[in-house]
Nucleic acid binder design. Structure first.
Lengths: 358, 358
DNA sequence: TTGAAAGCGCTAACAG
DNA sequence: CTGTTAGCGCTTTCAA
């Protein structure tokens, strides 16, 4: 039905090898011949057959991204970086959105089919241990983003450092009772951010108050969602009224901060008037809501992940890499720094790395 | 390097044809043989080679989705529906995110490669005329979502009707000076929603006031973005102070409403206190912001699009279909219906379809 | 029910 | 520089 290289070869009066060379601009073809062949290509509106090419060349030029897909804005923004870089490199990107944990394995299984994809990107999810051997055996390149595994390349952000910066900022603004609204401690980012929060308190000599810390239980998106933030804020409400009240909150993600903000508003608590807030991620909406937050270079992380994956594809046995970005503090409205500088200001403490257990 | 059906055949003592039949559970294989072969399959951890299979069977089991990707929440939610259905049907989904208009053609060109994908989904974008003939020639199935073209299957929402409902709701709440914040009139949804707005005014005998209508110019996302909404709101500010002031606004998308809300807040205008607001889409954030809005069944539209595409793949010459959903009014905070019912209430007007030109 | 053989359309190694 | 040839791994007749 379609035009094949045989048709082209016949029409141009050359062999199919030559046609193939022209198509893949192989150097050893005379200018005249190439011209003639490409002419025929245009005239016959030839379209190469993707899969035939892939079968013969053993390269698929396709990668898969496995991502938690329940409208997770962080992941979406990483995905954009991935897509942009893939597009730039002319690589097809297969999207596997995970709604149910079981799907992870299903997608991995698919990716493992020989010749299906050249590599897999794993975003914001724990990599299932049962698959690490398989991936290695079948030599499937894997890169993790916002996740970590000692046997795969990972791209992440300094969560502990970021959480420390956030907490210090609040301390610097004069706050002494700082609450923490966390996601599920099952996840690494949640653990690390809690460590950072705690470390910042410790280094300043502030007590770690158990009641000030709310973690999400097992739930949708591991607690990185709006409702989780709102619930936590509601739980925190009494703490605003007690003597020596909580006057600031560090929320481990913007999306939770949005929910917390909402809950606070409904309870008549003003932010930053009554309580200051700093969160984490800097998703696009953070700007809209005026969140002071720790920015993660999501787009850049996505782009880098694709580069890292292609590198890995080219060198399957190279050493495992770990790339770490440093989050930046973006000051907007919720921390109150812009509004009034009435509070006492502490000098930033030195970078002492306590390692409190969580 | 990998295990092939030849290995399986040798190991099981059968021909490759039989192996292939077992793998594709073709009926004409004896239970015993099948058992034996499948045993070997498991023992050797055989993985079929995707591309070989695709080449031989001429089916790719892959579709592509071309979507405007600059964090457009509407599209993302549609995409989720697409992904869910594709996953359910075991179809691979290639994601083509468009950042620059030129990329559309690039992606279409790729999709047109023989055997690349079985079909293409086109979300929220005008389909380039230069490609309609090509798609038909190469018999590439195409389905449009939130867009329309007479020669392709389309899935959309009754924009005019929705806009009328929204505007009528505001009228019913007693408002008489209702502004319109629109996106770029280059797009079909913008045109249709403006028609609906106008029709609702006309049927009630309210004048169409030119100064009350703000359309976005040519810009990012055709004006369907936050900044556009904020700008429009700022332009509208004087109208709130004049005699016979504007007391309500219909905004053609939630994302613009978010921007408008922000701008209003900064200008000291309370919503719904000073001005009521109804918007369109019901993206996930609408709930968070308390937007009264016209709900589009985005997820459902995405799912249906995939079904429609597979149907089309099975019957390339069937009649072109157009599926239309009706948007639902979701009442939350911004319209003020919950707050006070102080205003006069008009009875809903009959469904007269004026067709004002835009 | 099964095996053998002929492709699917292309790449790449090998002669010339 | 170019033509020929041998696969890539699988599906699908066609006989048996």
């Amino acid at each position: 039905m379609g035009v094949t290289i045989y048709d082209l070869a016949r029409e141009a009066g050359v062999g199919i090898g030559t046609v193939s060379r022209c198509l893949n601009n192989h150097p050893s073809v005379s200018a005249r011949t190439r011209e003639r062949v490409l002419d025929v290509v245009r005239r016959l509106e030839y379209q190469p057959h993707t899969h035939a090419r892939r079968l013969a060349s053993r390269r698929t030029n396709t990668i898969a991204a496995i991502i938690p897909f329940f409208t997770n804005y962080f992941s979406i923004q990483v995905l954009q970086g991935v897509q942009d870089k893939a597009s730039e490199l002319d690589i097809d990107l297969i999207l596997y959105g995970v709604n149910h944990p079981a799907e992870v394995e299903e997608y991995l299984r698919r990716s493992l089919q020989r010749g299906h994809v050249d590599g897999v990107l794993f975003i914001s999810m724990r990599f299932p241990d049962s698959y690490v051997t398989k991936c290695h055996q079948l030599r499937l390149p894997v890169v993790l983003i916002d996740a970590y595994h000692s046997e795969f390349d990972s791209i992440r952000v300094e969560n502990k450092e970021g959480a420390m910066t956030a907490t210090r900022h609040l301390i610097g603004l004069g706050h002494r009772q700082i609450a923490l609204i966390n996601a599920s401690l099952e996840t690494l980012p949640a653990q690390e951010r809690q460590q950072g929060y705690r470390a910042a308190l410790l280094e300043t000599g502030l007590p770690y108050v158990r009641e000030n810390v709310i973690a999400a239980g097992a739930m949708r998106q591991d607690g990185f969602n709006r409702e989780s933030g709102a619930m936590a804020m509601r739980q925190l409400l009494p703490a605003f009224g007690r003597p020596d009240p909580v006057t600031a909150v560090f929320v481990v993600s913007d999306i939770q901060a949005l929910g917390a903000l909402d809950a606070a508003r409904k309870a008549g608590i003003r932010v930053p008037g009554d309580v200051a807030m700093v969160s984490f991620d800097d998703i696009e909406l953070a700007q809209h809501a005026g969140l002071t937050t720790m920015r993660q270079p999501m787009h850049q992380m996505g782009m880098l992940a694709v580069e890292c994956l292609t590198t890995r594809m080219g060198n399957p046995d190279g050493p495992v890499t770990l790339t770490t970005f440093h989050p930046d503090l973006v000051i907007r409205d919720t921390c109150g720094a812009h509004a009034s500088r009435a509070g006492r200001t502490f000098a930033p403490a030195p970078d002492v790395a306590h390692e409190p257990t969580v």
